[in-house]
């Protein structure tokens, strides 16, 4: 579905990504794990196009999208739940969600997407008239995920969706991710620092360190390798 090869990018003169390669399988949860500051978010931003690639290639559904602008990728069914929410604070929950259905393809499915989001997060329906800025952290995260679902994606990329949430809510996030896969049939690319939870959710795992992929395999393989766990995951 998504095939990234030897991706390079960075900020100004500083190179962050040193040719990581990664593939997602249709209908599966692929997880990219790694400690702080190794370039996970940069990887997603580069795949999404908000950071320009310096080299390498990105294929989505067998099409070369390496230098495609982000709004076209959204139209093709690629969605990003960015780190740090990025909601529209002066719009209410409903308006935030509807903004997710901005591109033409998504706007045609607006009502059914909205029903889906409300069934996934019933509390958002109750809060629909409230300003996004006034919600709790967990509810804001739901809006962020909901807004991404409103774009009618096939592949959803989540950047540390459980960050800063209470343990109970973290469980809720992972349950939602399972639902995205099983009930909506989405392909998921999940970035996490929470190694335990994402090892049990994922179908396939990549481990990133200093901008490179250092290991990959099924969650069982990663869990079964004490070297990998110790060197990169600290568990």
């Amino acid at each position: 579905m998504l095939r990234v090869k030897d991706l390079e990018s960075g900020y100004g003169p500083m190179q962050v990504l040193w040719k990581p390669s990664l593939q997602t399988k249709k209908g599966a949860i692929t997880s990219l794990l790694g400690p702080n500051g190794v370039g996970k978010s940069t990887f997603l931003s580069t795949v999404f196009g908000s950071v320009k690639p310096w080299g390498g290639s990105i294929y989505y559904e067998e099409k070369d999208v390496t230098y495609m602008p982000t709004h076209k990728k959204v139209e093709m069914g690629l969605a990003l739940v960015p780190e740090g929410k990025h909601l529209f604070p002066e719009m209410n929950v409903y308006e935030n969600l509807v903004m997710g259905a901005y591109v033409k393809k998504a706007s045609r499915h607006r009502e059914e997407s909205l029903a889906l989001v409300y069934s996934l997060f019933p509390v958002l329906k109750e809060r629909s008239g409230q300003l996004a800025g006034s919600l709790s952290g967990g509810e804001q995260q739901m809006v962020t995920v909901g807004r991404a679902l409103m774009t009618k994606p096939q592949l959803i990329m989540l950047d540390e969706p459980s960050q800063g949430l209470a343990p109970l809510l973290v469980q809720e996030v992972f349950r939602t991710i399972q639902k995205m896969k099983e009930e909506i049939g989405l392909t998921v690319l999940l970035i996490e620092q929470n190694a335990d939870a994402s090892l049990s959710a994922a179908d396939f795992v990549y481990i990133m360190h200093e901008g490179r992929i250092k290991a990959k395999g099924s969650p069982e393989e990663i869990k079964g390798s004490p070297e990998i766990r110790e060197a990169y995951l600290g568990i």
Partner: peptide, 22 residues
Amino acid sequence: GTAVRAVMQDRKGAGVCGVNVN
């Protein structure tokens, strides 16, 4: 007009929604 308001409130958020920010 709605897209302009979205960009004013959060540029990155607007990009995620598929707004052509440029």
